[in-house]
Amino acid sequence: MYLSMTGAIFITIFGNLAIIISISYFKQLHSPTNFLILSMAVTDFLLGFTIMPYSMVRSVENCWYFGIIFCKVHYSFDLMLCVTSIFHLCSIAVDRFYAICYPLHYSSKITISVIKRMLAVCWSVPAAFAFGVVFSEAYASGIEGYQILVACSSSCPVTFNKLWGTVLFTVGFFIPGCVMIGIYVKIFLVSKKHARVMRSMPENANHEKPNQLSKNNDRKAAKTLSIVMGVFLICWFPCFFTILIDPFLNFSTPAMLFDALSWCGYFNSTCNPLIYGFFYPWFRKALRYILGKIFQTNFYTTSLFPENQ
């Protein structure tokens, strides 16, 4: 368990750190979309660096060694960073929606100031929700015997009542998930429409290459979107659904099962750099430059995109 969890933590930390360094260093990557990816990488990096190691010790040892106060701090940051990561995924979906569906208006709609406001929401709302709910102990209001459970338990228990379990499921998963699904379905339909328009053009030598390129891009977009939504739903749905139904089942979910589902959610932050980083050619090129030419000067202006893009 220690080896497998350490491997996940290692990928989460260094995968997101590579994205942070690449986007921060290369001027060509300073775009609104990449700033969203950069902020999400910071979120996932902090989750891997500050939260997952303590959760690993608790999961393996079945005991919390760090005190009740740090338990609340840990869980507040845990909840905040997880929801913040999900909000970033939703923001990236909105950004892609305007880029693909309204390309002529994209530069005027998605500006740096708009990105700053989106990032402010992505960070402030989860922070206010997590720290407010956990430190006020509103999540435990009405749960019979909760104080005795906390006093007698050594595993840092945080159990949501019916009200706050529903609120967390709705705000942290259901609404962002529905927004992402709706946006990506719209993007997929628009991509299919563009492909049909390209195929309807007269077949000649000049159009043969664009048609083939459109088909390849369409397949690539469908594959990428299916991976994004599949990983998001697989990782987060079991955890949030358990938080929702557990109060209605009289908190009968085994602690080990809930812990495993939490790690399934963490795994989304491990996969994010693979999806939004390693799938992009510019990231692989940036990583090669960083590893191979880090001691050379002025290579931060290196072109990472083909000349025809």
Rank of each mutant, 00 (worst) to 15 (best):
P202V: 10
F279V: 06
F66N: 14
I183H: 00
N206G: 12
I175W: 00
M40Y: 00
V57G: 04
D246W: 01
I9L: 13
I234G: 15
I290Q: 12
D44T: 15
M40S: 08
F251T: 10
S31H: 07
G230K: 02
R58K: 07
F251L: 12
I68S: 12
G182Y: 02
D44S: 14
Y300R: 12
A140L: 04
K215D: 04
G67S: 06
M118I: 14
P273M: 02
Q147R: 15
D259E: 09
W164G: 01
I100V: 06
L29H: 01
I183P: 02
Y300Q: 13
H194I: 13
K72C: 05
P238W: 00
N211S: 14
P273V: 03
N211G: 12
R288K: 15
R96P: 00
L36I: 11
L29W: 02
K209V: 15
F35A: 14
A138K: 13
N268K: 11
T159V: 13
K162M: 03
G172P: 04
C271E: 02
P202Y: 02
E137I: 09
K186V: 10
F129A: 05
K220L: 14
A260R: 09
F241N: 08
K209N: 04
L249R: 05
T111G: 06
P281S: 06
Y75W: 09
F248C: 05
A99Q: 00
A140G: 09
Q296L: 08
T33A: 14
P238K: 05
S107F: 04
G172N: 01
A128K: 10
V114Y: 09
L244A: 01
M180R: 02
L29P: 01
S22M: 06
L168C: 04
I23P: 03
C101I: 04
T111I: 06
G145C: 06
S141I: 12
T6Q: 11
G15V: 00
L81N: 05
I234T: 14
L249H: 03
T224Q: 04
T166K: 00
W236M: 13
